[in-house]
Design a protein around this nucleic acid. Structure first.
Lengths: 249, 249
DNA sequence: GTTATTTTTGCAGGTTTTTGCGGCTTTAAC
DNA sequence: GTTAAAGCCGCAAAAACCTGCAAAAATAAC
């Protein structure tokens, strides 16, 4: 295979799948990974793709990439996401907030899952769109600049019209007395509406945030059904939450 | 075998297989590789094939994988965007569709502009968010996977509630008889609602799309107020549109 | 048919490109 | 932390390329 031919093939693959791995390309084309790396480097120099550790990403403007390395406690968050996946079943309607833990979950959803995800978070929605069998509903309203999530009365009204199976919530602070709390008025309103419109609410948080609090309450501790952290479920710090009747895992 | 004959054979092989190797050609025709190289070089100079290290590729192969028109019309699109900017004033409410021309416009908006942009296009919204003084409203509904734009009844209903100053529309096809046309049912419905909710509609399109048409109509030619292309406004191809009372620039 | 002229071809050399590999460092995953 | 994967650097072999040149072939002229 000619070099240019190979690079054209790679470019095609990148644009098709939004990402490629050096290892799998090397196997597909039967050349060494070094060669693939050099090709990716050249294509990246020409601005046609974005080179990352292990492969490359498409240059396309609508792909938001959160380099995993920059996400705080990335490993913990992926652990959390893995625990949540089994609770998402075919046919479900699911409301989700934004946040890096939710993004992590979106990335590891099994490809064959058929469900409807409803969210106001643009980064989350873009991740859901990568899954061919997932229907994605975007909740509209004013877009908050830093969190890239829609907030406001329209969004809340829309959420209140729903009655979904599950709410997946990324949590900023949680403790026994104050329940779930946050520090952004608009986002709290959205989260509040989401828990109220869902039959079941799963909270996802890294253990650092356990037993902390913020000024505005989303809901009391009784308002949630399941709490997922990266810790072992029998960890002592989680005991009070089990006592409060929350399923912990 | 004569030189002419040989080159004709090579050209045929290139067009048949999309690529040839100097080595295998040399063997097939029983001439030295140097001769093959010289032939390939000549054919390349005539623009009939593309010479690469080790052989040659067909022209069409190159077009498919490296759309040269991409960067070509990219400049056109930025030109168009530049012409539109002066028509966007402080305090305006503006509905926009998606599309690369719109993205280009979003990127060059002056930083001090204070306006409200309303759109269902996720890529466009992400661009608007980069501007600190622009309020961004996202129109919610089901997200179309390919175009990353929200479509459906909810979105249309929301747009119809609005009465904005300006609609900026990326156009897929336009001609005098059929007006603005497109090929995606859902997106046509959205565009239709947008023009109806705006006091003024500006259409943006590269000249390639002028005098073409698609199966579904967005609005007749009288439905738009301004047409912006990369061409000089006095270009003959635009004359009919001026005659129809559209401001052309 | 012969000769002169031009074109084409193959080859010898030296140069450049491409590729894979070993050793070592950096990055990411757990 | 530890461990595995990916990346980087330099090197060397193979392949492809280029240049100039002379033999061979085609063409033109007489």
């Amino acid at each position: 295979m000619l070099k240019r031919e190979r690079q054209a093939y790679i470019l095609h693959q990148v644009n098709l799948h939004n990402k490629v791995l050096s290892s799998s390309l090397s196997e597909e084309i039967s050349v060494s990974e070094d060669t693939i790396r050099r090709d990716l480097q050249e294509l990246a120099d020409e601005g046609k793709i974005i080179k990352v550790h292990g492969g490359a990403l498409s240059q396309s403007f609508n792909y938001i990439n959160y380099p995993s390395s920059k996400v705080y406690s990335h490993d913990h968050k992926r652990n959390i996401a893995r625990k949540v996946v089994p609770h998402i079943k075919d046919g479900m309607f699911i409301l989700t907030t934004g946040g890096t833990t939710i993004i992590e979950l979106a990335r590891i959803l099994p490809p064959q899952l058929k469900a409807t995800f409803i969210s106001g978070s643009i980064p989350a929605v873009l991740e859901y769109l990568h899954h061919p069998n997932i229907d994605v509903i975007l909740i509209g309203d004013r877009v908050s600049r830093n969190s890239k999530i829609t907030v406001g009365g329209e969004a809340i009204a829309k959420i209140k019209q729903l009655r979904v199976d599950l709410c997946l919530m990324g949590v900023n602070a949680i403790n026994i007395n104050n329940g779930i709390t946050d520090n952004d008025w608009d986002i709290v309103q959205i989260k509040k509406a989401m828990t109220e419109s869902a039959q079941k609410t799963i909270c996802m948080t890294i253990s650092e945030k356990i037993n902390s609090f913020q000024p505005i309450q989303v809901c009391p501790i009784t308002g949630i059904d399941m709490l997922v952290t990266e810790l072992d479920p029998i960890d002592a710090i989680l005991e009070p939450y089990r006592q409060a009747g929350i399923e912990v895992l």
